[in-house]
Design a binder for these strands. Structure first.
Length: 753
DNA sequence: GGCCGGGGCATTTTT
DNA sequence: TGCCCCGGCC
């Protein structure tokens, strides 16, 4: 049992053993943060703190699950299960369900995801006859979300001069009215959105001191992971709850705060010390992940930020190779160079594909990279696509399940009232929803008896609505004495969804059936896991409602499958946080892309972008390659790009450029870091750093259709088409070995033969 | 209900 | 450029 303590370094051990009050652990990248957190929890359990009085909050289900597993290994499965460990959203949705009557919500309240929220907002904007171009659902949603994260209810929004005036300035004065209606419609539907899970928890504790008091007594120890990413609502929940025992330990790294756009407030961690008198700070500064060069380079970068908690991260690993900086002539070439570099490094150093990650700022950058990887037969896995629960058929099926659990759920109802087609059109639905708003009732209530609420419907519509009502009520009835997975099968059949697909006999239809089967399988798994967990209890928790509650707070990252396959990883830098790879490529290191265009006017935003870049570099264990293109195809146009300002922030002594850089003057002091030829001669890929300036672009006037031209990379070919004029002339060339390409003359180095 | 074409748009997204 | 959403049409 003592063994796990002996594996910690001095700083880690001190942080684990301290139990004297508020504590902040500043955990640098790769410093063994998770290990410290798990050891600390295990230690607390060992010294007699009952596990059920420990609340450990994380930001992802994945983090919670991993930590739980590790603690189970240290302290035993049974003990670990008693911990309150999970995401803010899942833990507090549990508490909200237990206390729902205090707030007037049903215990089986639905959780609206962002799509539900936006779709509701859209319908409200329409109902209020507002301009849907001015009041875009996404925009309105983010305004309401920001308000909620700052604990501004619709009432306080109305009374908040600053907000109201700023809305008038931005010509969106109706936000407050929309917010009010939105909140009411959610309430009538028995639904909370993601932000409500935190906001309503705060309201619960604010308005019901006895409830607050109960939980304050109950929970003795709080641990919060990724504290730099907490928002005000989260911060207030934990600070309220921990007031009695004052045993709160927050862990985080201000240098890795990258979620301000979601309401994360870096000040929570920067000010923690001053908010908690007698707070002890521990710094974990030894990086176990990366080479000295990578750590030092990252340090030199982050030192350019003003707002930070001072610390010196160091590595005692080998010195390692310099960070390779590669300039390419286009985004297209960048992708091919990254791909061929991966092949080369893999062969030379016997890496596996899964030792590589390609990171980028924006998802759209993945396209060319994928193309290049495919062409070079490199297996890859891309993150950031549709999650399982985002698929249409799954969403539809889940909507039925949601209605069984809570028929007042308006968004679920609207989604499937006419799916499969029942001839209930927009007009009918519009009549029902506006009657619901008028009477301050749920759509379901209206639908059960349209006549009573003077909804003008013809006999046909009434009959169709009634058929739908019957389907739902039968399913609810069935669910009373059947298992959740059987209920799911029942409703899918009863609604005619399965038949639809079975009769279709297409590839898509069979893949949809598979997805539905997987959904049902997921429910069955949920049941058996729960059975095991609650073996000694009455089993009341095993319900469809329970499954939905869990599913709605889950993301695709939590249900990763075949991670064992040997593949290169492609993902955004955001998605890479918390992960590590032997070799990391950070692509698109250009101004207006990284840092993104939207950040360049705000010093604070630039600092966040710099932290994001810091996160990217510190993912690498052995090699880090930074690439930037001199031209990039953006929004339908090829743009000239200049290298990111962040490249200048890295101390040049840690950089190794792959030859002379045409318009960027970073001269590495040492070029011995990376001994290999940067780019071994491949006939079709010239060195990445061809001097574009030295090559005269071919004169547009001298090009004719049918002329034979030569291109540095593609070899010879014939011009088949010419578009545009002057500098923007675009030529279509049929290359002998590379097929047809479109080339902009100002960039393509063509010579007429 | 589904198909087509025009217009507007284009970060990041642990929940 | 390419996608998504909407309106118009059959």
């Amino acid at each position: 049992m003592e063994e796990y303590l002996s594996q910690l370094n001095e700083a880690q051990r001190e942080a684990v053993l301290y139990t004297g009050g508020p504590e902040m652990i500043i955990a640098g990248a790769g410093s063994g943060k998770t290990r410290v957190l798990t050891c600390k929890i295990a230690y607390l359990m060992q010294i007699g703190v009952p596990p059920e009085s420990i609340m450990a909050l994380t930001f992802t289900n994945k983090a919670a699950r991993e930590m739980k597993e590790r603690i189970a290994a240290l302290a035993g499965q049974r003990e670990a299960r008693r911990l309150w460990m999970g995401t803010f959203h899942s833990i507090f949705s549990r508490i909200l369900r237990a206390e729902s009557d205090r707030l007037g919500y049903p215990a089986s309240f639905t959780i609206y995801d962002s799509d539900d929220s936006k779709s509701l907002l859209k319908s409200i904007v329409k109902d209020m006859s507002l301009d849907d171009k001015t009041y875009r659902p996404g925009m309105v949603h983010s305004r309401i979300s920001n308000a909620k994260n700052s604990l501004i209810t619709w009432k306080s929004y109305e009374q908040n001069k600053t907000l109201v005036e700023s809305d008038i300035k931005t010509r969106t004065p109706m936000i407050r009215d929309i917010y009010k209606v939105y909140q009411n419609r959610c309430y009538q539907a028995g639904a909370m959105d993601f932000d409500d899970l935190l906001l309503q928890t705060n309201i619960l504790f604010r308005d019901h001191p006895d409830v607050l008091d109960k939980y304050r007594r109950f929970f003795k120890y709080f641990l919060v992971d990724e504290y730099q990413d907490t928002n005000f609502a989260q911060h207030l929940i934990v600070s309220r709850l921990s007031e009695t025992h004052r045993q709160i330990c927050v862990v985080g790294d201000d240098a890795q705060s990258i979620y301000s756009f979601r309401g994360a407030n870096i000040d929570n961690i920067l000010n923690f010390k001053s908010q908690y008198a007698g707070c002890r700070t521990f710094k974990l500064e030894r990086n176990y992940r990366s080479t000295q060069t990578i750590v030092n380079a990252a340090n030199s970068l982050i030192n350019k930020n003003r707002e930070r908690i001072s610390k010196t991260i160091y590595s005692e690993r080998e010195k390692g190779s310099g960070i390779l900086l590669v300039s390419t002539y286009s985004d297209y070439e960048e992708a091919f160079i990254v791909a061929s570099k991966i092949s080369e490094m893999r062969m030379r150093n016997q890496y596996t594909y899964s030792d590589f990650a390609i990171l980028y700022r924006a998802n759209k950058q993945s396209r060319l990279l994928e193309e290049a990887l495919r062409k070079l037969n490199i297996p890859y896995r891309i993150y950031g696509g549709l999650s399982f629960y985002d698929r249409k058929e799954v969403k539809d099926a889940v909507a039925y399940l949601r209605l069984i659990v809570n028929p007042h759920d308006e968004e679920a109802l609207k989604r499937i009232i006419n799916y499969p087609a029942r001839g209930i059109g927009d007009t009918t639905v519009g009549k029902l929803t506006s009657a619901a708003t008028r009477h301050n009732l749920s759509v379901w209530t209206i639908l059960k008896d349209p006549h009573a609420y003077d909804v003008q419907l013809n006999a046909g519509a009434i009959r169709k609505i009634d058929g739908f009502r019957q389907t739902i009520e039968d399913s609810i009835e069935y669910s009373r004495d059947n298992q959740a997975d059987d209920t799911a099968l029942f409703v899918l059949k009863r609604a005619g969804i399965v038949d639809d697909f079975v009769n279709e006999h297409t590839i898509e239809a069979s893949s949809r059936i598979e997805n539905l089967e997987e959904l049902v399988k997921g429910i069955s798994e949920y049941i058996s896991i729960r059975r095991e967990e609650y073996a000694d209890e009455d089993g009341e928790h095993i319900t469809l409602a329970g499954f939905l509650a869990e599913a709605s707070l889950q993301t695709d990252q939590d249900r990763d499958k075949n991670t064992d396959a040997d593949r290169v990883t492609l993902m955004t830098v955001h998605a890479a946080k918390g992960l590590e790879f032997k070799n990391v490529f950070v692509t698109g290191m250009e101004e207006n892309l990284f840092p993104t265009l939207r950040s360049v006017d705000s010093p604070r935003a630039i600092e966040e972008e710099r932290r994001l870049f810091y996160v990217a570099i510190t993912r690498a264990e052995e090699n880090c390659v930074l690439t930037y293109a001199q031209s990039r195809f953006i929004n339908g146009q090829t743009e000239r790009c200049s290298p990111s300002r962040f490249l200048l922030d890295i101390d040049a002594r840690y950089l190794h450029t792959s030859g002379k850089l045409s318009d960027y003057d970073v001269r590495p002091k040492a070029s011995t870091y990376y001994q290999s030829q940067p780019f071994p001669s491949r006939p079709q890929t010239r060195s990445a750093t061809v001097e574009t300036s030295a090559v005269e672009p071919v004169d547009a006037a001298s090009l004719r259709i049918g002329v034979t031209v030569k291109h540095d990379r593609f070899g010879t070919g014939t011009v088949t088409d010419i578009e545009g004029e002057g500098a923007n002339t675009k030529a279509t060339v049929e290359f002998d070995n590379f097929g047809q390409k479109q080339l902009l003359l100002k960039y393509a180095r063509l010579t007429v033969l």
